[in-house]
Simulated assay, not measured.
Amino acid sequence: MATIKDLSLKCGVSVSTVSKALNGYKDIGEETKRNILKAANEIGYFPDSNARALKTKKTYNIGVLFSTMFNHGLRNEYFAHILASFNEYATGKGYDINFIEHNVGDRKMTFLEHCSYRNFDGVCIACCADFFDNEIQQVVNSKIPVVVIDHIYNEAISILSDNMEGMRQLTQYIIDQGHKRIAYIHGTNSSVTHNRLVSFYQVLRENGLTIPNEYVVEGIYRDSDTSGLLTQRLLDLQVPPTCIIAPDDYSALGVMNTIRRSGLRIPEDISVAGYDGISVAQALEPKLTTIRQDTDRIGTEAAKQLINLIERPMVTSISNVYLKVSLMKGSSVGYVTSTELNRPSRQSIVD
Score class of each variant (00 low, 15 high):
1 M>I: 08
2 A>S: 15
7 L>D: 05
16 S>C: 04
18 V>E: 07
19 S>L: 09
25 Y>K: 14
27 D>F: 09
27 D>W: 08
28 I>V: 15
31 E>H: 06
41 N>W: 01
45 Y>A: 11
46 F>M: 12
49 S>V: 04
52 R>N: 12
54 L>Y: 10
57 K>Q: 13
58 K>V: 01
68 T>K: 08
73 G>V: 00
74 L>Q: 01
74 L>G: 01
78 Y>C: 04
81 H>I: 11
84 A>N: 14
89 Y>F: 15
89 Y>C: 06
89 Y>G: 05
92 G>F: 06
95 Y>Q: 06
102 H>Q: 09
102 H>E: 10
102 H>K: 12
104 V>Q: 03
106 D>I: 10
108 K>P: 03
111 F>D: 03
117 Y>G: 05
118 R>K: 15
123 V>G: 02
123 V>P: 00
125 I>H: 09
128 C>A: 11
131 F>V: 14
135 E>N: 13
141 N>D: 15
144 I>Q: 11
144 I>N: 11
146 V>G: 09
152 I>S: 02
156 A>L: 12
157 I>W: 00
157 I>L: 03
158 S>Y: 02
163 N>C: 04
165 E>W: 05
170 L>Y: 02
170 L>K: 08
171 T>C: 07
173 Y>P: 10
174 I>K: 01
175 I>A: 09
177 Q>S: 13
178 G>K: 05
181 R>D: 12
183 A>E: 04
184 Y>P: 00
187 G>W: 04
188 T>P: 00
191 S>N: 10
191 S>A: 09
194 H>N: 07
198 V>F: 11
200 F>M: 10
200 F>T: 05
206 E>L: 14
210 T>R: 05
215 Y>M: 07
216 V>D: 03
219 G>K: 00
223 D>N: 15
225 D>H: 13
226 T>D: 05
229 L>Y: 14
229 L>Q: 11
239 V>A: 11
247 P>W: 02
248 D>P: 00
251 S>L: 03
252 A>G: 13
253 L>R: 13
254 G>P: 13
255 V>P: 03
260 R>Y: 06
262 S>L: 01
264 L>K: 09
272 V>D: 06
275 Y>Q: 02
275 Y>W: 06
276 D>V: 07
277 G>D: 13
277 G>C: 12
283 A>M: 15
284 L>N: 03
286 P>T: 05
291 I>H: 12
294 D>L: 12
300 T>F: 09
308 N>E: 07
309 L>A: 13
318 I>G: 01
323 L>D: 04
326 S>H: 04
326 S>R: 12
332 S>V: 06
333 V>M: 05
